[in-house]
């Protein structure tokens, strides 16, 4: 589904002295699998999610990103979205004046148009919205409010998962979705994500802590340090990290 090869990237600064943040990342996520990336703050894991989604604040200086066998390294963010890549933001952006459902319908139809499909009908869209909102305990009132405006941290994360459900991506990247969530909210979000697991859908879970992974049960856990993936293993790797911390990798990287 997603194949990242020797990916190098830096902040897109005016001068050439910008520090490389990704220093040769290799990652291969087959269809249907859930992979986790864990690592200390500043290791480059959030940057990886931005670069994968096509944020123009970063410059790819080497390597490639392939999505379903197609090179998307240079693709616009909206092209990647239409192909089925969804990034759940660590800090979802507030958009005053644009009601959530209006926003989502416009986005869904833009994706469909890019894929050569006709627009979704309003009743069909509303039915889908009601079903998905119910799964996440999202009220009608929340859907009418402008995108993310006035929502708590936990509500914003819930809305991100709601948006993912509505757009039904092939690859779901969760960037620190557990940050700012209390234990109840974490459970609701995790249940929502688990409900989306499917043989033709992959997930990349980026997190600092193990607690979200207890619910999501990843197939593979990667450890990232200083811009590289330094170790990969099964779910037990996450438990080991929780117990021992990241010190070992920090030393190795230095």
């Amino acid at each position: 589904m997603l194949k990242i090869t020797d990916l190098r990237a830096r902040l897109d600064a005016e001068d050439d002295a910008a520090i490389e943040i990704l220093k040769g990342v290799n990652l291969d996520i087959p269809a249907g699998e859930v992979h986790a990336i864990m690592g200390p703050n500043g290791c480059g894991k959030s940057t990886l999610s931005y670069v994968a989604a096509g944020h123009d604040g970063y410059e790819v200086t080497g390597g490639s990103i392939a999505f379903e066998g197609e090179d998307i390294t240079e693709a616009e963010p909206e092209e990647r979205a239409a192909k089925g890549l969804f990034l759940s933001f660590q800090y979802p952006v507030e958009i005053p004046g644009v009601p959530t459902l209006t926003f989502l319908k416009e986005a869904a139809n833009a994706q469909r148009k890019a894929r050569g499909e006709g627009p979704i009908s309003a009743p069909e869209f509303m039915k889908l919205a009601r079903e998905n909102a119910a799964k996440l305990g999202i009220s009608n009132d929340m859907l009418k409010r402008p995108v993310n405006v006035g929502f708590s941290g936990g509500e914003k994360k819930r809305m991100e998962i709601f948006q993912a459900m509505m757009l039904a991506p092939k690859l779901l990247i969760l960037d620190e979705t557990d940050s700012g969530l209390d234990i109840d909210a974490l459970r609701i979000v995790a249940d929502g994500v688990n409900a989306m697991r499917a043989p033709d859908r992959s997930m990349l879970v980026i997190t600092h802590y193990q607690r979200l992974l207890q619910y999501l049960k990843p197939d593979v856990v990667h450890v990232m340090s200083a811009g590289r993936i330094v170790e990969s293993g099964g779910p037990e790797l996450a438990e080991q990290l929780e117990a021992e911390g990241y010190d070992k990798y920090a030393t190795e990287a230095a």
Binding site: P77, E78, A81, V93, A108
Partner: peptide, 10 residues
């Protein structure tokens, strides 16, 4: 960027 990530053109 957020809106483009959801599929809208710039």
């Amino acid at each position: 960027f957020y809106m483009r990530q959801r599929g809208m053109t710039e």
